[in-house]
Design a protein around this nucleic acid. Structure first.
Lengths: 339, 339
DNA sequence: TTGTATGCGTTATCAC
DNA sequence: GTGATAACGCATACAA
């Protein structure tokens, strides 16, 4: 059974298609009676407008695209939830794509979204992405774009993120104030701004507190398996630096990997080594000992990014120039048993 | 800058639109030279087909819709990942909607997807959904539909799920074999088939092992906050039934809530009470003590559901009648420290 | 091998 | 107040 069209309703009522269309859209120049008749008939015939036809005519799809490195990542799934919720309020649909931290995939997916003429795009950059032509190209066209979480300073578009550097600084500062002196950092991959910033925050805090920065205390987690990275790096650390008294990790899962290793080799947290995570995922509160970490407004980040995107879509539609904005969401420390 | 159309290319090359169209689609009746010229020009002009126009013509959108109760739920985010990955292979885009366990929302979202003429729909039913007219209506139209995870026996469409009853049976059987005799069950809400089935598996195991079923040992988790449900029900249980020696929970997060309460009141797991979860989420392996649970193929469920959906979309397109299938994915027990 | 004509379902401008 | 008519961008049957 094919879908009912305006034509079908028109035929059924022996009226013209344009009359039906106008009545359905509440135009003033249709008499109340006919309008009501048409509305009732449409309802009865189970009419549903064909979005493709509408898109073609109106040149807007009421759809946005979102590219994230991975949907199953707890952080992103929560952001997505925020985005989808917000989109629904605005009557927008959300197409979700995962780049798997791959630059080429990300690039291709942008094409796909363009092909579908989405009204706007939200991206959290892949770890691999260090060239931005694909995005710059996009920005020159009539398509709104907002970066979130994994952003870059090299792109003059709106962004929603946290102050990773400051947040990391606070975390390490907290360790320092507690008296820890030999603090290692399990950092993220080299490209993403976010992992650079957290590293810089770490370094700065050490310097500010008169602790010499020791590069050999920085371990990189770049195997796309944070838990394992944490576990392995913990193993290495214990071999190489017996004097370390605290670790600040790029993310909670890394910290949980560390905990696992320490549990296996009977190193006690925080007595032997303290541990500070980042993200405040659910698991941070339920592991033993519970994990001190940096709380970031995840759901809010999604909502905010979406909200800004919709504003830009609206501006674009009205041919108003958009001023790129950078929203920094507040973070806070969750102090728990691990320090 | 408006998007380049076939017309633009045609004008640029002084050819007809249809020639361009055919060349781009690789039709045989275009000479190799012109085709190559056209391909090069299209590339150069940065032509990207307008999906809305194509949809309108071809009556397929190469898009599927997915409705889940919540994307931030770890289980669903993993399923979604499987769906998106699989869709990408088939060249399909995925629109994701969350019903928030609300029947009316689910119903409305189905309308939205119809409006967008998606080629197929995947749904995991909301906990509230106990009427299925909205879905039955859909099934009568040219739109493929596959249920996953939260399915129902009342709908004659394809389904992908696990054997919840059997899986729950195995878990409880495992507890019984270990010698636990007074086993409570923290069940899910009353409507979803899945929580009914897990409950039935629990009950059956007891009966088969000669333990009388005691309804007062069954606690319901229906506040949409599994952790809290677990925590609160644990509190109640301890008050009401001091003799219970094991708990089987509907899901891991509930179990983690239980663990938290027990930790707070110094009840030892598994010495005082054993604990068995369901889902094998990441956290199950990292809490202390680690949680015994039922492992289910989450990512696989998404992939499988998508795969079946695409088969049905294909069948529908070729006007082949589709035979509903029910795929049961295998589960297994993960025995850890909590029992 | 290429071009012409038509229609997909809708919106919007213009007559009547 | 209502109805032709054209246009959105593309695909395809058919004519040349």
């Amino acid at each position: 059974m094919a879908q009912v069209t305006l034509r079908d309703i028109a035929d059924h009522l022996s009226m013209s298609v344009s009359t039906i269309s106008k009545a359905l859209k509440g135009y003033a120049d249709i008499s109340k009676e006919t309008r009501e008749l048409i509305l009732a008939t449409a309802e009865e015939m189970n009419y549903i407008p064909n979005a493709s036809a509408v898109n073609l005519r109106t040149k807007q799809t009421k759809t946005i695209g979102v590219i994230v490195p991975s949907t199953e990542h707890q952080f992103f799934s929560k952001v997505l939830s925020g985005i989808i919720d917000e989109a629904e309020k605005y009557g927008y649909l959300v197409i979700i794509l995962q780049s798997n931290e791959n630059y080429n995939t990300e690039k291709q997916q942008l094409q796909l979204l363009k092909q579908n003429r989405v009204d706007g795009i939200l991206i959290s950059l892949s770890n691999e992405t260090h060239r931005f032509e694909h995005i710059e190209k996009l920005m020159k066209e009539d398509i709104a774009l907002v970066l979130f979480d994994k952003t870059t300073k090299l792109l003059p578009c709106s962004k929603v993120a946290i102050d990773d550097r400051q947040a990391a600084y606070s975390a390490v500062e907290c360790l320092l104030k507690k008296g820890y002196k030999r603090i290692a950092h399990f950092r993220g991959p080299h490209i993403p701004q976010l992992s650079i910033d957290r590293f810089l925050g770490y370094k700065q805090a050490l310097i500010d507190y008169g602790i010499p920065f020791d590069p050999s205390l920085v371990y990189v987690c770049d195997n796309n398996d944070d838990f394992k990275d944490g576990y392995e790096n913990a193993r290495l650390l214990v071999q190489e630096h017996k004097d370390v008294d605290a670790i600040f990790t790029i993310t909670d899962v890394v910290a949980v990997g560390v905990m696992k290793y320490f549990k296996d080799v009977k190193i006690s947290i925080p007595d032997d080594i303290a541990l500070f995570g980042f993200s405040n995922w659910f698991m941070a509160s339920v592991v033993t000992p519970s994990l001190s970490t940096v709380d970031q407004p995840t759901f809010e980040m999604g909502k905010t990014a979406a909200k800004i995107l919709f504003e830009e879509i609206k501006a674009l539609k009205n041919k108003v120039k958009i001023e790129p904005r950078e929203i920094i969401l507040p973070t806070s420390l969750k102090i728990r048993e691990s320090i």
